[in-house]
Computed example of a mutant assay.
Amino acid sequence: MQNIFRNSSIFVCILLIAGCTSKPRKVNASVPLVTFSQEKPNKEVVPERYWQALSDPSQLVLPHTEFSLQLSELYTSALGKTCRELTITDKTQVMKRRIVCEISFLNAENEQQTAWFLENEIIESTRHFEL
């Protein structure tokens, strides 16, 4: 009986050691999680006169005749883009928030170019519903 217990213990130890020493299987993704494109984004371009101010971390306000434009601090998005939140207040004090991001792309001459773009709006709903 003691011999069976000893042999079983040795067998379990060998299995544990073999399991810990083998490297994990190599996995290759067949579909990328994020598609990377060098094409110009199909988004609204921020006028070029604002690009320098948007890139300046110390700039917190953009000059505009019709709106008050407040800037948040620069941050890096999950996709690695440099972005800022833009708070737009009109003369009637209606406030709107938009995100602007600096995106690199290849222009028509196949040269690297960088520009600031307004990100697509995220629609927020005030209606509550349950599934």
Rank of each mutant, 00 (worst) to 15 (best):
E121I: 13
Q59L: 01
L69R: 08
E85H: 15
L16K: 02
P63G: 02
I123N: 07
T21N: 09
T126R: 04
E121C: 11
V94W: 07
W116M: 00
M1T: 12
E119C: 04
E121P: 07
L74N: 10
Q93K: 02
F105L: 10
E119Y: 09
N107F: 00
D90E: 10
I4T: 10
A18H: 03
S77Y: 04
I99E: 11
R98V: 09
T21W: 14
S125K: 14
Q59S: 08
A115T: 06
K23N: 09
I123F: 05
F5E: 05
L71H: 06
I123K: 06
L62A: 07
S37K: 08
E44N: 09
H128T: 12
R84C: 06
S37M: 08
S37Q: 10
I10V: 08
E119Q: 15
N110E: 00
C13Q: 08
V31L: 12
V45Y: 02
K23E: 03
N107K: 01
I99V: 15
S37C: 11
W116R: 04
V45W: 03
R127F: 12
V34M: 08
G19Y: 00
T82Y: 03
C83W: 11
T92I: 05
P24N: 08
Q113K: 12
T92W: 06
I123V: 13
A29R: 10
H128A: 10
K23I: 04
V12H: 13
F11G: 12
S55E: 13
N42L: 10
S22N: 09
L62Y: 02
Q38K: 04
L62K: 04
E111S: 12
V46Q: 00
E130D: 03
Q113F: 06
S72G: 09
S30M: 06
A108Q: 14
V12R: 15
E44S: 12
S77Q: 03
K96I: 02
A78G: 13
C83E: 09
R25A: 13
Y50C: 07
V31I: 14
K43N: 12
I10F: 14
N110M: 04
I103F: 01
K26W: 08
V34E: 09
D56E: 15
G80T: 06
S22R: 12
N107D: 13
D90G: 12
